[in-house]
Design a protein around this nucleic acid. Structure first.
Lengths: 359, 359
DNA sequence: ATGAAAGCGCTAACAA
DNA sequence: TTGTTAGCGCTTTCAT
């Protein structure tokens, strides 16, 4: 690769100064048409490609945004297990994970589209258990703003980066509200869901399933609790505080079953937990929605394919991605503004697992 | 965002020169341990984040790779229609496309993983019908190498970029073999598939379905033709040269059906076409695999969910992504080397649509 | 082992 | 309208 031509080469070829070359690209109207043509054709014939590094250095901004996500290698075996109609044994290692687009992917898509639309380039970074500080500052040094998924990187590093460039968080608010972030109406979504269960299906005995580690989950739980209270009903207490594994859920189900104390519905904090619950219930030979209903939250694709299809609350993932970019750009242009928390609406998606019949 | 600290600030704080600061980060062994500590702690306390732009300018390389893909908004309605067990009407606009990860996504994943592993940052770019030259050179100016999907951008632009930085193409060889590219063993894959159809299912009358516009498709077709010839069989001539739409396939199927001239199998060039064929056959009330078999090529996820599940040839997408990055980095480090064409193996995936029974 | 200094290619005052 | 020029922050000889 020969070192490419620079502004100097183009300037010489066109018989103008480098400033004129720069203007021609940045503010075409500032130069006389004839000059512009000369520069453009010189650039074209030379195969000139402006150096983003040089420009970034000079302008103090890179024109790129970053997206940092944890490198989730989901074990879809567990997810797939809930779907009786899909072959379960992975055919080869390549197919053993990521059968469906995940939450993260869908948001990433929104981020990409919005970035391009707004004229920003997008750098994607991936965390993994041993993300070094170097990797991280490396990407931080390349962008004008960074979007991060919850838990995708240590709080200390996050803090440091956010001192340097705007950072927006998805869902979670780790750094005490100093950062912009986008969330969804978890409380309201859960309220709609619970109302559906109570009003339409006449259910009164609901069990929440989900850890209370994320703020999303906490909001969902409180939405459920508050709504039931309005009806004069009492939600079943939580089984545990932390994350629920497939095994945890299996144990929960069997002990409840053994005690003859099954709820009328398992209201899960996330689709993933709901899928695991579907799976556990199936193992225990308990009919869904016949004997007990199950609901999720998120709206991931796997829930749509599951049988029974999962009733859930869908987050507007693509919109979230776009909103993230909007906040980032807004803050880049407007650094001093107070932190913004943008809340997006969710939508109840009624399918089969709540007791409604298939369309 | 206060302008962040620079090498100068760190140097001053640590009581050394900027060169020493640079060395400390680039070649830690070149500086005395005590010095190193001083610099590191100064950097830490100042919250120093090196500027990628400055570094890129100075070194002549950005340390980033680019991936450019067409912004495929797949109409999954057609795809979903082939699956009788999945609700077909999209619930909302957000769900009307991209139900499953696409070919492109899976490759992108491989690219991401390999980039991070090799210490490169990744910029993703998205083409759309009106990608301007500006957008494009903009991304070209930011990276040390670019991976492009076929048809994701005009050949003229591609040519220009490849003059400046290494470019590797996925599958297609547009620019007359001047570029590195990765392909898969389309010919061999099709041979395995045809042999399966002939040997196991005793089929002798096969109809190819697919446009001959891509080199992948051409290789698949010739693999089929050559293999049948070896058996002394004759492949059905192609119905048309260009791309096959759902409607084209519908017409093909009905005219064949009306003429009582259905083949024993439709061997499709891609999974997407196979899914459309499944769909068309279903509309025509023709049983698959009972009356006629159908096969695809690619191994996209939707084919696995379809009913009957699609027999196909799977491309090692993640591997392809990794290979692309490998070629790119190799050429960056070794610019003068002759163009490389790396061919990856494929694997026959027998499912139901060929007549085999579900596992 | 460390410092001085010359760029890397571009932008943006400021002049002309 | 166009040219001059001083950086932007970092790397990298070349001295010391």
């Amino acid at each position: 690769m020969a070192k490419g031509p620079t502004v100097y080469d183009v300037a010489q070829e066109a018989g103008v100064s480098i400033a004129t070359v720069s203007f021609t690209f940045r503010q075409p109207d500032r130069v006389r048409p004839a000059t512009r043509e000369a520069v453009l054709s010189a650039a074209r014939s030379l195969g000139y490609v402006p150096s983003a590094s040089a420009r970034g250095l000079a302008r103090g901004r890179t024109g790129a945004l970053g997206l940092f996500a944890f490198d989730y290698l989901i074990d879809s075996t567990a997810v797939a297990a809930g779907r009786s109609d899909v072959e379960s044994p992975p055919e080869d290692p390549n197919e053993s994970y990521r059968i469906f687009p995940l939450y993260v992917d869908e948001i990433q898509r929104g981020v990409q589209l919005e970035c391009w639309k707004r004229g920003y380039a997008l750098m994607v970074g991936g965390g993994n258990p041993n993300t070094t500080e170097t990797t991280l500052t490396d990407i931080a040094g390349r962008v004008d703003g960074l979007a991060v998924f919850p838990n995708s990187l240590p709080q200390a590093i996050l803090e440091r980066i956010s001192q340097r460039i705007p950072v927006v968080e998805v869902s979670e608010t780790l750094l005490n509200r100093e950062l912009d972030h986008v969330t969804v109406d978890n409380f309201g979504g859960m309220r709609s869901l619970v109302r559906h269960l109570v009003d339409v299906h006449q259910l009164t005995d609901l069990q929440f399933v989900g850890g209370l580690t994320s703020s999303d989950n906490r909001a969902r739980w409180s939405g459920m609790a508050a709504t039931l209270t309005q009806y004069g009903l009492t939600p079943r207490p939580l089984a545990q505080e932390g994350e629920f594994s497939r095994e945890d859920i299996g144990n929960l189900v069997s002990s409840l079953h053994a005690a003859g104390a099954l709820p009328q519905a398992f209201v899960c904090a996330t689709d993933e937990e709901a899928l695991k619950t579907l799976d556990a219930l199936k193992d225990a030979g308990i009919a869904v929605p016949g004997t007990v209903a199950v609901t999720g939250f998120d709206g991931i694709v796997a829930g749509k394919i599951a049988r029974p299809a999962l009733t859930t609350v869908r987050q507007p993932m693509e919109e979230m991605g776009r909103a993230i970019v909007g906040l980032l750009i807004n803050r880049i242009e407007n650094p001093e503004q107070a932190p913004v928390a943008q809340e997006l609406p969710v939508r109840l998606v009624v399918r089969e697992s709540c007791g409604c019949s298939a369309p």
